[in-house]
């Protein structure tokens, strides 16, 4: 089973990269960009057929390694 997860900086944590990307886009003429926040995307292939169990595993991985819960949130966005 393939699980997709995204990790993003928590809402109130400064995202320096997102801020500078937004400024650069503005400079290129994309005037209506309000905000950009950057994150990481993971595809995790787990040897597990039960969707719930697989997602639970992935969640654990996010908690323990993929996301730094001090500054980041994660979300399981899909599984197939």
């Amino acid at each position: 089973m393939k699980i997709s997860a995204i990790v993003t900086l928590k809402k109130d944590v400064l995202d320096p990269q997102g801020k500078v990307v937004q400024q650069a886009l503005k400079g290129m003429g994309f005037d209506n960009v309000k905000e950009i926040r950057q994150g990481k995307y993971f595809e995790i292939d787990v040897d597990e057929n039960d969707k719930k169990k697989a997602e639970k595993k992935a969640e654990e991985m996010c908690k323990k390694l993929l996301a730094n819960l001090v500054i980041e949130d994660f979300k399981i966005i899909g599984s197939q």
Binding site: L9, K10, K11, D12, V13, L14, D15, P16, K19, V20, V70, I71
Partner: peptide
């Protein structure tokens, strides 16, 4: 929860 004190993130570029 949403308002918990947040860790300062450095932005060396700025």
């Amino acid at each position: 929860e949403e308002k918990k004190p947040t860790v300062q993130v450095g932005d060396p570029f700025t």
